[in-house]
Structures are given as structure tokens and as C-alpha cells.
């Protein structure tokens, strides 16, 4: 379970103070698929960074399964990111001079999984995100944007995290692949009890969510959603 308590993040820009995340609070039960929508610059990515312990809040706290991130030292936050979080970045943030499969293997390497096991799992994950096997060994900078996005999603799933934070995970995908990724994320939350929080402009993905939030000028508001089964059939 994730509890977000009065989360605030401010930035100073000259004389002005910007609050992309302004007193945000919510609770997500384990296995929830939630979506956050909002205009560009509304603070969605900043909120994801705070939940993923990539950034520290100005005030407030994120409590994951009873553990307060604000109180964790850097080494424990690194461990939290490695074991509990799968992050899909909007800009993918893959290592360009490594192959697709090597990128997916990286988090497993940090987690101490032996090479044969992580190679097999990396290949399985790349197949799950429908990356052509002939491109598994290809360097990242020789893959298209959509292919890189699939590698980024596979990497986020590598250590079977409890929480997946995805920033526009279908933004660069064609409709068919996008639908497949949406189904993959949905099945992860449904069948593997993985909590998934996606920032998206994709209406189909947003409608698939169990809970839907809108971030507006740093304030988070929950919007009503249709039943998941209904939404899926829509």
C-alpha cells in the first residue's frame, strides 16, 4: 500500500516559487491500476519522481508498506528503487551503447540475479512487450522510439516490482502495440497484484484504470471511473 501524505515539491525560478506538487495526498491499495491525467507542466512527472524516490519532497511524505521514504537514507532509497519500483521514463532513459537485452538485464544485475537467469528473463520480457527477437541484441540507438519504449517497459518489469510508475508508457507506440502494453499493465495489476500508476494522455489507458486522478496546478483530484470490466469492453 502506498500512502502519499501532504506532498509538496517547490522549485525556485528567479524570484518566483513554483509548486508543481502542492499538498497532494492519496492512498493506493496494492494491485491498483491508477492513472494521472493533466496538462503538460501540471506536475505529473514531478509527482512520479517523488513516488519513485528519484527526488525528495520539499515537505510531506510517501509511505510504502509502512516505510516512510522521507526517513530512509540514500542507500536504502537506492534499494527501494531497485527492488520495489519499476520506472518507465517518458524519455526512456536507456543506456544507448548497450543492447536491448543488456538494458533489461541491468536492474537484475544490481539485484544480484545470476547471469543465465537474468538473460532468460530479459528475453522473456522483451517478447512480452513484443520486441522482435532479431532486435534483442541491437543497440538502443539503433532502435526506433516505439521499440525503445518497449525496452524501457521491459526494464521496468525486470525485478518484478511491487509498484510500477510509468510516464506516458504508450506515448510512442502504435495503436496495436499500445493496446498490448495496456493489457500487459492491466494484467500485471490484476493477476500479479502489482500497483501501477501511469501518467498518460491516452484515454484508453486512463479508462482502464481502477482509479483516475487529475493533476491541475499541483493539486490532485480524483475523478470517478467506470467499472473496469465496462471500461475494458468500451
Amino acid at each position: 500500500m502506498i500512502e502519499v501524505k501532504n506532498l509538496v515539491r517547490t522549485f525556485n525560478s528567479g524570484d518566483r516559487t513554483i509548486k508543481p506538487v502542492n499538498d497532494v495526498s492519496f492512498v493506493l491499495e496494492q494491485g491498483t491500476l491508477a492513472s494521472i491525467v493533466g496538462k503538460s507542466g501540471s506536475g505529473k512527472s514531478t509527482l512520479l519522481s517523488l513516488l519513485g524516490a528519484l527526488d525528495k519532497p520539499t515537505s510531506g511524505d510517501v509511505v510504502v508498506n509502512g516505510v516512510s521514504l522521507a526517513r530512509l537514507p540514500d542507500s536504502r532509497l537506492t534499494e527501494y528503487r531497485r527492488r520495489d519500483i519499476g520506472f518507465v521514463f517518458q524519455q526512456f532513459n536507456l543506456i544507448p551503447n548497450l543492447s536491448a537485452v543488456a538494458n533489461v538485464m541491468l536492474p537484475m544485475e544490481f539485484a544480484g540475479i545470476r547471469k543465465a537467469a537474468r538473460l532468460q528473463r530479459a528475453r522473456d520480457l522483451l517478447e512480452q512487450v513484443q520486441l522482435d527477437p532479431s532486435k534483442h541484441e541491437r543497440r538502443i540507438n539503433r532502435l526506433s522510439g516505439g521499440e525503445q519504449q518497449r525496452v524501457a517497459i521491459a526494464r521496468a518489469l525486470a525485478n518484478e516490482p511491487k509498484l510500477i510508475l510509468a510516464d506516458e508508457p504508450t506515448g510512442n507506440l502504435d495503436e496495436q502495440t499500445g493496446d498490448h502494453i495496456i493489457e500487459l499493465l492491466s494484467s500485471l495489476s490484476r493477476d500479479h497484484n502489482t500497483t501501477i500508476l501511469v501518467v498518460t494522455h491516452d484515454r484508453v489507458l486512463a479508462n482502464k484504470a481502477d482509479r483516475r486522478f487529475r493533476l491541475q496546478q499541483g493539486k490532485l483530484m480524483e475523478e470517478p471511473v467506470r467499472d473496469r470490466a465496462v471500461a475494458a469492453s468500451a
Binding site: T78, E79, R81, F89, P107, F110, R155
Partner: peptide, 16 residues
């Protein structure tokens, strides 16, 4: 630097 940031983001310890 960016590569270091990415490695940190996906859980690489400083010693690694």
C-alpha cells in the same frame, strides 16, 4: 552524468 543518473534511478548502488 546522465548514464550515472539512469543507473542510480534503476537501483545501482554507488559502489557499483
Amino acid at each position: 552524468r546522465r548514464e550515472i543518473g539512469v543507473l542510480k534511478a534503476i537501483g545501482a548502488p554507488n559502489r557499483t
